[in-house]
């Protein structure tokens, strides 16, 4: 017993001496010279299996090759990602903890919650933009709705949560079209889509990539997309703007780290992500999920997002829309 114990102790000491160091101190790594010196964490504020999660996993798989350390995707679902974002804000700014930041959290959620609860993207360092994702309004075929003008009664609509693009697109559309509609929030895209499939709600706005298989199978009817131009994949479905409504809402995603992360480390991460973006596997993934690359640098992305926030705030004020669930 004791001799085996001694052998084990020796093993551990050997491990410790050969550089298998602890993870306590934050000294030394501050200049980024030996970054990354341990496994990295990529936070995802949505459940496993959703669009954001899949993007995170596709990227983590590539980025780890360049960084030479494992990159673990960790799901911290809650409030369109605010839970994960707040957790990131509290993390050590050493580049080992990152997040896939959903743009809607930065430019739509603040319209739905109190200022104290809103997440401000300028409180983070943006490593790089990732891609954009279009929303599409789908209806249960049983409703008979094919265009917005077909909707001639009070309806219920599913949203993927409070303060999401799914909610804003529909709130804006129905306000402009004068349709009396009740929002029913679900937890993410898959349950929302299921509710449309089962006729629990009449319509829902979800991301194109999430709905494509169901649209292709004819199980839901696309009504409008909220894209800037018609997606090549849905040539016959008008955009909301073409249909006469001002709803320029998209989902955008970026990689962010806590504010105060040394610039060398941010650059190192950006290099790693750019290599990942260039990979064929990742590009195929984008095509398959109908994502538009938006691999811009931090300042450009911040400009895009703050612009969106101003646009949406003006629209929400104009149509007197309350995004929080309580009336």
């Amino acid at each position: 017993m004791t001799s085996r114990l001694r052998a084990l102790t020796a093993t551990v000491l050997a491990l410790a001496l050969t550089g298998c160091g602890g993870n306590l101190g934050d000294d030394g790594a501050a200049d980024g010279a030996d970054f990354p010196d341990r496994a990295l964490t990529l936070l995802v504020g949505q459940d496993a299996g959703g669009s954001t999660d899949l993007i995170a996993r596709a990227l983590a798989d590539q980025v780890k090759n360049d960084l030479g350390r494992p990159v673990t995707v960790q799901n911290r679902p809650g409030a369109n990602g605010a839970v994960a974002a707040k957790e990131l804000a509290a993390a050590k700014p050493d580049g080992h903890t990152m997040i896939v930041f959903p743009g809607t959290l930065a430019y739509i959620t603040p319209l739905a919650v109190t200022p104290a609860e809103a997440v401000d993207i300028t409180g983070y360092d943006v490593v790089t933009g990732i891609s954009q994702d279009d929303f599409v309004l789908v209806a249960n075929p049983g409703t008979g709705f094919r265009t917005v003008t077909d909707i001639d009664r009070a309806i219920t609509y599913g949203t993927t949560g409070v303060g999401t693009g799914s909610q804003l697109t529909q709130a804006l559309l129905f306000a402009q079209a004068g349709i009396k509609a009740t929002a029913v929030p679900f937890d993410g895209g898959a349950p929302t889509l299921t509710a449309v499939l089962g006729g629990q709600v009449d319509v829902a706005s979800v991301q194109l990539g999430e709905a494509q298989a169901q649209i292709k199978a004819g199980k839901v009817t696309p009504i409008v997309t909220f894209a800037q131009k018609r997606p090549s994949y849905l040539p016959d479905t008008p955009t909301a703007v073409e249909a006469g409504y001002t709803v320029p809402v998209q989902q955008s995603r970026a990689i962010a780290v806590p504010k105060g992360t040394p610039p060398q480390i941010v650059d190192r991460l950006r290099t790693a992500f750019q290599k990942a973006f260039a990979g064929q596997a990742y590009r195929d993934f984008n095509t398959q999920r109908l994502l538009t690359p938006n691999e811009v640098d931090g300042p450009t992305l911040l400009g895009q997002w703050t612009g969106s926030l101003q646009t949406y705030r003006a629209l929400v004020d104009q149509y007197d829309i309350n995004l929080a669930g309580t009336a």
């Binding site: 299996g49 996993r57 596709a58 494509q212 169901q214 596997a281 993934f285 398959q288």
Partner: peptide, 12 residues
């Protein structure tokens, strides 16, 4: 999700 990364699209 793992399937998707491998290039297989799950769906109906």
């Amino acid at each position: 999700g793992a399937l998707l990364i491998q290039g297989v699209a799950p769906g109906p």
